[in-house]
Design a protein around this nucleic acid. Sequence first.
DNA 1: TGTTTATTACCGAACGATCGGTAAATTATA
DNA 2: TATAATTTACCGATCGTTCGGTAATAAACA
Lengths: 186, 186
Amino acid sequence: MRPQKVNDADLMAGLMSVFRTKGYEGTSLNDLAVATGLQKASLYHRFPGGKKEIAEAVLVYARGWIENNVRQVLEDSNEMPAIRLARALDNIRELYGNGKETCILRALSMDQGLSLFGDGVQQNMEEWISGFYRLGIDLGLEHEDAREKAEDTLIMVQGSLVVGKGVGNDSVFDRAIRHLSRLYLT
Amino acid sequence: MRPQKVNDADLMAGLMSVFRTKGYEGTSLNDLAVATGLQKASLYHRFPGGKKEIAEAVLVYARGWIENNVRQVLEDSNEMPAIRLARALDNIRELYGNGKETCILRALSMDQGLSLFGDGVQQNMEEWISGFYRLGIDLGLEHEDAREKAEDTLIMVQGSLVVGKGVGNDSVFDRAIRHLSRLYLT
DNA sequence: TGTTTATTACCGAACGATCGGTAAATTATA
DNA sequence: TATAATTTACCGATCGTTCGGTAATAAACA
């Protein structure tokens, strides 16, 4: 068979990059074609379901990333909680380019996006929350406290990304991440 | 002159409602026409600059709302800080329909929206932050602490709206608002 | 082995629908 | 009558999507 012009990893990274900066409605098939170096028709060869299927695949890709770089890191019982937290937060910092990038979950959860991908968005968020929940439990928190603290972690990150972009200040995200360290370790 | 079929207040409310649920790119002039009961061409009569001018007007409208219902309430030196905070948070709760609605600032701050309306979004956020900053000062906080706490207020609200929608749980927003009360009053 | 047959990956061109936007005409007030 | 508000009809451009066809590899057969 003919070799793939673009491998799957690069493809998914390129597709996610477009969706997370432009949102679902703001992203055109042309944008996706330019970003991946494939023609529109070629994208339809790989994703017969079109734009919707591409966005779904991106959410699966994102979920895998969170599972590997956040949840599993936080649940690694071979390491001390403080180490796990530091590593997870480093990965999160990298994921969002120190606050310069937006979150794919926010980008795909406006109105139409939410009705199309609501389940995928929810699964991503639950993946995230369950990691920090486990960290809280391992630090001796009660069930309800651990759940709320984990939820607050996601809230702070999402909120700081929105506000940081809005006020045009990169330090907002940085401060939020540092705040999360203290939240768990004091 | 012929009377307006739709008055300005209803018009702005309808326009904002569409933008905040669908985002800038996700909103079509047809959507705006249906929501307001006017034809597309009538919208162009009122807003010759088209979609962009409409979104700008919506941001001005939103800023006025925040100024009246958040900043001025928080800065009302005739009331005790606790009363001011409670009133402002009530207004915020109402603005977001107890977490069921999204924020117009988030909706208009994706990529293209941010490059078109970045200034308007920033002004809205600064309006918000400056109100809570004043509250913090009146509660005896130092400048830097007051600024950070005010920023955190906006972060928590924006974040809880994103996460609440994402996980499909109305109580996320409620809990965030209650958390903000404790943040200032303890 | 050499040759045919399928299969896979990709592309250029075009589809109908909808996009944001405009011009001219109609309706209603003053 | 002059003018402001609204409407119908329309425009070119772009949207997501589909189609016909080509190049290259893999599989099947001789």
